Simulated scan of single mutants.
Amino acid sequence: MNLMLILTGFIVLFLAELLYFKIAGRFNIIDQPNHRSSHSNVTLRGGGIIFSIALLLYPLYFGFEYGYFLLGLGIISFISFVDDIKPVSNKIRIAFHLIAVALLFYQLDLFNLSIFWIILALILVIGSINAINFMDGINGITGSYALITLCTLLYVNIYIVEFVTTDLLITSIISVLVFNYFNFRKKAKCFAGDVGSVGIAFIILFFLLLVVIKTEDFSYLLFLLLYGLDTITTIFFRLIRKENIFEAHRSHFYQYWANEKKIPHLAISAIYASAQLAINALIIFWMPHTIFIFFLFLIFTTIIFLVCRFAVEGSTRLIGD
């Protein structure tokens, strides 16, 4: 993709985002703060729709090379956008998610694998989509984290192993840059919404699964390590406290920094993105890519993350009295 095409893509997506703001304002698609929110201002919701729009427009110029993936993206983005406007029942949402993931798996030829690997991939994808969605709670965190992940994948695709058309990755990065312009600020113009967080999760997981399949190396899944650690440890502590893990909450580590410690949202987002960038660099340049090292690194980082949470939040908050 040449510079002129990149600039054109940025302008088109920028205008598309502005058009969405007009529509969202007209139909009152807003995020109303409540007691579980980490923000206090009424803000447009669903600005992350630009992630899906960018890739759904992609075939108009580059062709339908990834048709089933894009169809799945369209399906999961549609139900997520509807859910942003008016809550959808869990059964309907899960049904749409499963159809979208099935199309993703078909694109990746995963149905040729044994049932064990299909189930494992399903757990990974559904769990990761929900984790990324749960982590979308403060200004800048979704956009900055997605940008780091996608740029790392672009580096891998160009300099290590080509696993996808580079133009598709660049298109995704442009959409994230457009979104960040409106979201990565003290007073955000818009939030990603479920359509944004779920959409970008679906996109990132497509790229990650492609590179894992191409290389047969699970180490690349660690590009989502920090989000995974925050989500899994939060679920673990909520279970210990006998809380309903399906109810909305403010128990994530990043939420503690934002709500209890009053750390600026953009500072927290920058810390998470920078930490994941450091992890990605370690994985690419220094870590041996063996299954033993993969699990050893996972255990080591989990212990460090738990120690940090106990040191900062305290045992009473994490596990109760």
Rank of each mutant, 00 (worst) to 15 (best):
L306W: 03
D31V: 05
G228V: 07
T43R: 01
I141Q: 00
L18K: 14
F21T: 01
A258Q: 02
F285T: 08
K187P: 00
Y145T: 04
N90I: 14
V198F: 05
P264N: 04
A121Y: 11
I203A: 08
I138V: 12
F111L: 11
F236V: 15
I263H: 00
I75R: 06
C308I: 15
Y106D: 08
L13K: 04
A267L: 13
F81G: 07
L44V: 12
E65S: 14
I319K: 05
L55V: 13
I303V: 15
D84G: 04
L208F: 01
T316D: 14
F207G: 00
F51V: 10
N90F: 14
E17V: 11
K187R: 12
L208W: 01
N28P: 03
S77T: 04
F295Q: 14
D84C: 06
T142A: 13
R250F: 11
V156W: 09
S114V: 04
S172K: 02
S80V: 01
T149E: 03
S219K: 05
M4C: 08
Y66N: 14
I79W: 01
I293K: 02
K242F: 04
A16V: 06
F236K: 08
D321I: 08
L44Q: 02
F236C: 14
R241E: 06
L108A: 06
I99C: 08
W286A: 15
H39M: 08
I99T: 09
A311N: 13
N133S: 11
T290D: 11
Q255W: 03
A273Q: 01
I204K: 01
I53M: 11
L113I: 02
I132K: 00
E162M: 06
V161E: 14
N157P: 06
L73D: 03
F223Y: 12
A102N: 14
I213N: 06
I6Y: 12
E313T: 09
N280A: 15
F300E: 12
I76K: 00
K214Y: 00
T215A: 06
P264L: 10
K186H: 11
L57W: 05
D31H: 03
S269L: 04
L318D: 00
I29T: 03
V12N: 08
S172G: 08
Y159A: 01
N183L: 03
N259H: 09
I291G: 06
F96V: 01
A100Y: 04
V164G: 01
I30P: 03
I138T: 08
R45W: 02
K186W: 08
F111C: 05
K262W: 05
I23W: 09
S144T: 10
E313G: 04
H252A: 05
Y155R: 04
I126S: 07
